[in-house]
Protein backbone atom coordinates (compact mmCIF):
# COMPACT_ATOMS: atom_id res chain seq x y z
CA UNK A 1 0.00 0.00 0.00
CA UNK A 2 1.46 3.38 -0.97
CA UNK A 3 1.37 6.39 1.32
CA UNK A 4 -1.24 7.91 -1.02
CA UNK A 5 -3.46 4.83 -0.57
CA UNK A 6 -3.04 5.13 3.21
CA UNK A 7 -4.02 8.80 3.07
CA UNK A 8 -7.08 8.03 0.90
CA UNK A 9 -8.17 5.23 3.20
CA UNK A 10 -7.87 7.47 6.24
CA UNK A 11 -9.70 10.31 4.51
CA UNK A 12 -12.57 7.99 3.71
CA UNK A 13 -12.65 6.53 7.21
CA UNK A 14 -12.88 9.90 8.93
CA UNK A 15 -14.72 11.93 6.29
CA UNK A 16 -18.01 11.89 8.26
CA UNK A 17 -16.72 13.38 11.50
CA UNK A 18 -14.52 15.81 9.60
CA UNK A 19 -17.47 17.08 7.55
CA UNK A 20 -19.61 17.76 10.62
CA UNK A 21 -17.09 18.78 13.26
CA UNK A 22 -14.76 21.00 11.33
CA UNK A 23 -17.43 23.26 9.89
CA UNK A 24 -18.54 25.82 12.42
CA UNK A 25 -21.62 26.67 10.39
CA UNK A 26 -22.86 23.09 9.87
CA UNK A 27 -22.42 22.10 13.52
CA UNK A 28 -23.95 25.36 14.79
CA UNK A 29 -26.98 24.93 12.53
CA UNK A 30 -27.57 21.39 13.81
CA UNK A 31 -27.33 22.60 17.40
CA UNK A 32 -29.60 25.59 16.71
CA UNK A 33 -32.52 23.43 15.53
CA UNK A 34 -31.95 20.54 17.95
CA UNK A 35 -34.62 21.64 20.43
CA UNK A 36 -37.10 23.23 18.01
CA UNK A 37 -37.53 23.78 14.28
CA UNK A 38 -36.61 27.33 13.25
CA UNK A 39 -37.28 29.70 10.39
CA UNK A 40 -34.53 31.40 8.43
CA UNK A 41 -34.93 34.77 10.16
CA UNK A 42 -34.71 33.11 13.59
CA UNK A 43 -31.52 31.34 12.56
CA UNK A 44 -30.12 34.59 11.16
CA UNK A 45 -30.77 36.32 14.48
CA UNK A 46 -29.26 33.50 16.48
CA UNK A 47 -26.18 32.82 14.41
CA UNK A 48 -25.48 36.43 13.32
CA UNK A 49 -24.71 35.34 9.77
CA UNK A 50 -26.16 36.50 6.45
CA UNK A 51 -29.01 34.52 4.90
CA UNK A 52 -26.83 33.28 2.05
CA UNK A 53 -24.33 31.64 4.42
CA UNK A 54 -27.08 30.04 6.49
CA UNK A 55 -28.99 28.80 3.44
CA UNK A 56 -25.79 27.34 2.00
CA UNK A 57 -25.16 25.41 5.26
CA UNK A 58 -28.76 24.23 5.43
CA UNK A 59 -28.63 23.04 1.84
CA UNK A 60 -25.50 21.01 2.59
CA UNK A 61 -27.22 19.42 5.59
CA UNK A 62 -30.39 18.76 3.57
CA UNK A 63 -28.28 17.03 0.92
CA UNK A 64 -26.98 14.51 3.45
CA UNK A 65 -30.44 14.03 4.96
CA UNK A 66 -29.78 15.59 8.37
CA UNK A 67 -32.13 18.55 7.93
CA UNK A 68 -35.42 19.05 6.13
CA UNK A 69 -37.60 22.03 5.39
CA UNK A 70 -41.22 21.78 6.49
CA UNK A 71 -43.23 24.75 5.29
CA UNK A 72 -40.97 27.66 6.27
CA UNK A 73 -39.15 25.97 9.14
CA UNK A 74 -36.01 23.89 9.17
CA UNK A 75 -35.98 20.81 11.38
CA UNK A 76 -33.76 17.81 12.03
CA UNK A 77 -34.59 14.54 10.31
CA UNK A 78 -34.50 11.41 12.50
CA UNK A 79 -30.91 10.83 11.31
CA UNK A 80 -30.07 14.46 12.10
CA UNK A 81 -31.56 14.12 15.57
CA UNK A 82 -29.50 10.99 16.35
CA UNK A 83 -26.33 12.60 15.08
CA UNK A 84 -26.86 15.94 16.83
CA UNK A 85 -27.73 14.30 20.18
CA UNK A 86 -24.45 12.41 19.94
CA UNK A 87 -22.56 15.53 18.90
CA UNK A 88 -23.92 17.26 22.02
CA UNK A 89 -22.72 14.29 24.05
CA UNK A 90 -19.27 14.68 22.50
CA UNK A 91 -19.17 18.40 23.28
CA UNK A 92 -20.40 17.85 26.84
CA UNK A 93 -17.82 15.10 27.34
CA UNK A 94 -15.06 17.48 26.25
CA UNK A 95 -16.53 20.26 28.36
CA UNK A 96 -16.60 18.02 31.47
CA UNK A 97 -12.96 17.07 31.05
CA UNK A 98 -11.85 20.58 30.11
CA UNK A 99 -13.59 22.10 33.11
CA UNK A 100 -11.48 20.07 35.53
CA UNK A 101 -8.36 19.70 33.41
CA UNK A 102 -5.91 19.34 36.26
CA UNK A 103 -7.97 16.56 37.79
CA UNK A 104 -8.30 14.46 34.64
CA UNK A 105 -4.88 15.08 33.16
CA UNK A 106 -2.81 14.26 36.23
CA UNK A 107 -4.27 10.91 37.15
CA UNK A 108 -4.34 7.31 36.13
CA UNK A 109 -7.74 6.72 34.51
CA UNK A 110 -7.29 3.00 33.90
CA UNK A 111 -9.72 2.16 36.72
CA UNK A 112 -12.59 3.76 34.79
CA UNK A 113 -13.97 1.48 32.07
CA UNK A 114 -14.28 2.88 28.54
CA UNK A 115 -18.06 3.08 28.52
CA UNK A 116 -17.95 5.27 31.65
CA UNK A 117 -15.21 7.46 30.18
CA UNK A 118 -17.39 7.92 27.12
CA UNK A 119 -20.25 9.15 29.30
CA UNK A 120 -18.18 11.49 31.42
CA UNK A 121 -20.58 14.24 30.29
CA UNK A 122 -22.78 13.05 33.15
CA UNK A 123 -20.23 14.66 35.48
CA UNK A 124 -20.51 18.06 33.84
CA UNK A 125 -21.93 19.65 37.00
CA UNK A 126 -19.31 18.16 39.31
CA UNK A 127 -17.23 20.44 41.49
CA UNK A 128 -13.46 20.12 41.68
CA UNK A 129 -12.06 20.50 45.20
CA UNK A 130 -8.35 20.54 45.88
CA UNK A 131 -6.11 21.09 48.85
CA UNK A 132 -3.90 24.14 48.88
CA UNK A 133 -0.68 25.01 50.66
CA UNK A 134 -2.73 27.03 53.16
CA UNK A 135 -5.16 24.14 53.69
CA UNK A 136 -3.55 20.79 53.09
CA UNK A 137 -6.61 18.83 54.23
CA UNK A 138 -9.25 20.75 52.29
CA UNK A 139 -10.20 17.82 50.03
CA UNK A 140 -10.23 15.29 52.88
CA UNK A 141 -12.23 17.54 55.23
CA UNK A 142 -14.79 18.35 52.54
CA UNK A 143 -15.19 14.62 51.93
CA UNK A 144 -15.59 13.76 55.62
CA UNK A 145 -18.16 16.51 56.07
CA UNK A 146 -20.22 15.08 53.21
CA UNK A 147 -19.92 11.54 54.56
CA UNK A 148 -21.64 12.58 57.76
CA UNK A 149 -24.81 13.49 55.80
CA UNK A 150 -25.26 10.01 54.33
CA UNK A 151 -27.77 7.37 55.31
CA UNK A 152 -26.52 4.83 52.80
CA UNK A 153 -23.01 4.61 51.42
CA UNK A 154 -21.40 2.61 48.67
CA UNK A 155 -17.63 3.04 48.58
CA UNK A 156 -14.97 1.64 46.30
CA UNK A 157 -12.04 1.96 48.67
CA UNK A 158 -8.64 1.35 47.11
CA UNK A 159 -6.49 2.34 50.12
CA UNK A 160 -5.91 1.27 53.69
CA UNK A 161 -6.37 4.53 55.56
CA UNK A 162 -6.79 4.59 59.33
CA UNK A 163 -8.15 8.13 59.08
CA UNK A 164 -10.96 7.03 56.80
CA UNK A 165 -11.73 3.92 58.85
CA UNK A 166 -12.00 5.92 62.09
CA UNK A 167 -14.55 8.26 60.51
CA UNK A 168 -16.53 5.38 59.06
CA UNK A 169 -16.62 3.62 62.44
CA UNK A 170 -17.87 6.79 64.08
CA UNK A 171 -20.65 7.00 61.51
CA UNK A 172 -21.52 3.31 61.91
CA UNK A 173 -21.92 3.85 65.65
CA UNK A 174 -24.28 6.76 65.03
CA UNK A 175 -27.92 6.49 63.98
CA UNK A 176 -27.85 8.30 60.63
CA UNK A 177 -25.81 5.85 58.59
CA UNK A 178 -27.92 2.74 58.07
CA UNK A 179 -25.93 0.87 55.46
CA UNK A 180 -22.36 0.80 54.20
CA UNK A 181 -21.31 -1.22 51.18
CA UNK A 182 -17.56 -1.47 50.78
CA UNK A 183 -15.87 -2.70 47.63
CA UNK A 184 -12.25 -3.48 48.46
CA UNK A 185 -9.37 -5.55 47.18
CA UNK A 186 -8.38 -8.77 48.93
CA UNK A 187 -5.18 -7.07 50.04
CA UNK A 188 -7.09 -4.27 51.80
CA UNK A 189 -9.52 -6.81 53.24
CA UNK A 190 -6.67 -8.76 54.88
CA UNK A 191 -5.14 -5.56 56.23
CA UNK A 192 -8.46 -4.63 57.87
CA UNK A 193 -8.80 -8.18 59.17
CA UNK A 194 -5.37 -7.89 60.81
CA UNK A 195 -6.47 -4.88 62.86
CA UNK A 196 -8.66 -6.03 65.78
CA UNK A 197 -10.64 -2.80 66.12
CA UNK A 198 -11.27 -2.25 62.42
CA UNK A 199 -12.08 -5.90 61.93
CA UNK A 200 -14.67 -5.87 64.70
CA UNK A 201 -16.20 -2.48 64.01
CA UNK A 202 -16.27 -2.71 60.24
CA UNK A 203 -16.14 -6.30 59.04
CA UNK A 204 -18.38 -7.64 61.80
CA UNK A 205 -20.91 -4.78 61.70
CA UNK A 206 -24.51 -5.67 60.70
CA UNK A 207 -24.67 -2.44 58.75
CA UNK A 208 -21.72 -3.33 56.50
CA UNK A 209 -21.57 -5.44 53.34
CA UNK A 210 -18.18 -6.23 51.87
CA UNK A 211 -17.45 -7.09 48.26
CA UNK A 212 -13.91 -8.32 47.72
CA UNK A 213 -12.24 -8.10 44.32
CA UNK A 214 -9.03 -9.87 43.39
CA UNK A 215 -7.23 -7.04 41.64
CA UNK A 216 -6.01 -3.84 43.26
CA UNK A 217 -8.34 -0.89 42.75
CA UNK A 218 -7.42 2.42 41.11
CA UNK A 219 -10.41 4.59 41.99
CA UNK A 220 -11.82 5.92 45.24
CA UNK A 221 -15.52 6.32 44.58
CA UNK A 222 -18.23 7.15 47.08
CA UNK A 223 -21.95 7.12 46.30
CA UNK A 224 -24.70 8.16 48.65
CA UNK A 225 -28.23 9.42 48.09
CA UNK A 226 -26.94 12.96 48.47
CA UNK A 227 -23.58 13.07 46.73
CA UNK A 228 -20.91 11.22 44.82
CA UNK A 229 -17.18 11.78 45.04
CA UNK A 230 -14.24 10.55 43.05
CA UNK A 231 -10.53 10.65 43.67
CA UNK A 232 -7.78 8.90 41.79
CA UNK A 233 -4.16 7.74 41.78
CA UNK A 234 -1.27 9.54 40.14
CA UNK A 235 0.26 7.90 37.10
CA UNK A 236 3.22 6.83 39.27
CA UNK A 237 0.89 4.67 41.38
CA UNK A 238 0.55 6.92 44.45
CA UNK A 239 -2.88 7.82 45.78
CA UNK A 240 -3.75 11.53 45.49
CA UNK A 241 -5.64 12.66 48.58
CA UNK A 242 -5.46 16.34 47.63
CA UNK A 243 -7.88 16.42 44.69
CA UNK A 244 -11.47 15.27 44.64
CA UNK A 245 -14.49 15.64 42.36
CA UNK A 246 -17.80 16.08 44.12
CA UNK A 247 -21.23 16.07 42.53
CA UNK A 248 -24.74 16.23 43.89
CA UNK A 249 -26.90 15.81 40.80
CA UNK A 250 -28.80 12.78 39.53
CA UNK A 251 -26.70 12.34 36.38
CA UNK A 252 -23.48 12.07 38.35
CA UNK A 253 -25.16 9.64 40.69
CA UNK A 254 -26.17 7.41 37.80
CA UNK A 255 -22.64 7.56 36.43
CA UNK A 256 -21.14 6.63 39.78
CA UNK A 257 -23.58 3.79 40.45
CA UNK A 258 -22.84 2.32 37.07
CA UNK A 259 -19.13 2.57 37.79
CA UNK A 260 -19.63 0.84 41.14
CA UNK A 261 -21.67 -1.85 39.41
CA UNK A 262 -18.69 -2.63 37.21
CA UNK A 263 -16.80 -3.60 40.34
CA UNK A 264 -19.41 -5.49 42.31
CA UNK A 265 -21.08 -7.18 39.36
CA UNK A 266 -24.54 -6.08 40.55
CA UNK A 267 -27.39 -6.25 38.06
CA UNK A 268 -30.06 -4.29 39.84
CA UNK A 269 -32.45 -2.60 37.43
CA UNK A 270 -32.68 0.60 39.39
CA UNK A 271 -29.01 1.36 38.93
CA UNK A 272 -28.53 0.10 35.42
CA UNK A 273 -29.95 3.06 33.55
CA UNK A 274 -27.47 5.75 32.62
Amino acid sequence: MTSKDVKNELTEEFSGIKYILTSGMRSRLLLAIYENPKKLDELRGELHKPSATILHGLKELENINLVRKVQKSYELTSNGFLLTANMIKLIENWYSINKDKSFWNNHDLSGIPDELLKSIYLLKDAEYVNSTTSDLSNAFNTYIKLLSTAEKLKIILPIYSENHFRHLIELLKGKKLRNLELIISEEIYHSIRNNDIFSQEILESDKVQITCVEKSLKIFLTCSDEFVSLSLFFKDGHYDDAQILIAKDKNAQKWALNLAKKYNGGEKDEISTI
Binding site: W94, I97, N105, H107, D108, L117, K118, I120
Partner: peptide, 19 residues
Protein backbone atom coordinates in the same frame (compact mmCIF):
# COMPACT_ATOMS: atom_id res chain seq x y z
CA UNK B 1 -1.93 12.16 28.00
CA UNK B 2 -4.88 10.93 30.10
CA UNK B 3 -7.23 13.70 29.00
CA UNK B 4 -6.43 13.14 25.35
CA UNK B 5 -7.12 9.46 25.83
CA UNK B 6 -10.66 10.41 26.87
CA UNK B 7 -10.90 12.94 24.01
CA UNK B 8 -9.87 10.24 21.55
CA UNK B 9 -12.31 7.69 22.96
CA UNK B 10 -15.23 10.14 22.87
CA UNK B 11 -14.34 11.25 19.35
CA UNK B 12 -14.19 7.63 18.18
CA UNK B 13 -17.48 7.03 19.99
CA UNK B 14 -19.01 9.89 18.01
CA UNK B 15 -17.61 8.37 14.83
CA UNK B 16 -19.24 5.05 15.75
CA UNK B 17 -22.57 6.82 16.33
CA UNK B 18 -22.28 8.37 12.85
CA UNK B 19 -21.48 4.95 11.40
Amino acid sequence: NPMSEVYLKTLMDFKTSMD
